[in-house]
Computed example of a mutant assay.
Amino acid sequence: MYENIIEQIREKIDELEAEARAIAREHWNYHIRENIWKVPEEKGRLNVYVRRKRDTLEIHWSKFKFIKPTSGGPSKIRSTYLRKGKSHVYPSRVLTVAGQAFELEVALETEERLGAIRSEAWAIGKILRYLREAEKRQRQRVKLIEDSEGAE
Rank of each mutant, 00 (worst) to 15 (best):
12 K>G: 01
13 I>T: 01
14 D>N: 04
14 D>Y: 05
16 L>I: 00
17 E>Q: 12
17 E>G: 07
18 A>T: 04
18 A>R: 04
20 A>F: 00
20 A>E: 00
23 I>W: 02
26 E>L: 12
27 H>W: 11
28 W>M: 12
30 Y>F: 15
31 H>I: 03
33 R>V: 13
33 R>I: 14
35 N>D: 06
37 W>K: 08
37 W>C: 06
39 V>K: 14
42 E>N: 03
43 K>D: 13
43 K>Q: 15
44 G>Y: 14
44 G>K: 09
45 R>G: 03
45 R>E: 02
46 L>N: 10
47 N>Q: 13
48 V>N: 12
48 V>Q: 14
50 V>A: 07
51 R>W: 12
51 R>P: 10
52 R>L: 07
53 K>F: 02
55 D>H: 09
55 D>V: 09
58 E>M: 08
59 I>V: 11
59 I>R: 03
61 W>E: 03
62 S>L: 07
62 S>T: 13
63 K>P: 04
64 F>I: 01
65 K>A: 05
65 K>M: 07
65 K>T: 09
65 K>W: 06
65 K>N: 10
66 F>E: 02
67 I>Q: 11
67 I>G: 06
68 K>C: 00
71 S>Y: 13
72 G>Y: 14
72 G>T: 08
78 R>H: 14
78 R>I: 14
78 R>V: 15
80 T>M: 01
80 T>H: 01
81 Y>A: 12
82 L>Y: 01
84 K>G: 00
85 G>V: 00
91 P>E: 10
93 R>G: 13
96 T>W: 09
98 A>L: 05
99 G>A: 11
99 G>R: 09
100 Q>M: 15
101 A>G: 11
101 A>P: 13
102 F>I: 11
103 E>L: 11
103 E>Y: 11
103 E>Q: 14
104 L>Y: 15
105 E>A: 08
105 E>P: 06
106 V>Q: 12
107 A>D: 06
110 T>H: 07
110 T>S: 09
113 R>T: 06
114 L>F: 01
115 G>C: 10
115 G>R: 10
119 S>Q: 14
119 S>T: 08
123 A>T: 05
124 I>A: 01
124 I>K: 00
127 I>M: 03
128 L>F: 05
129 R>T: 02
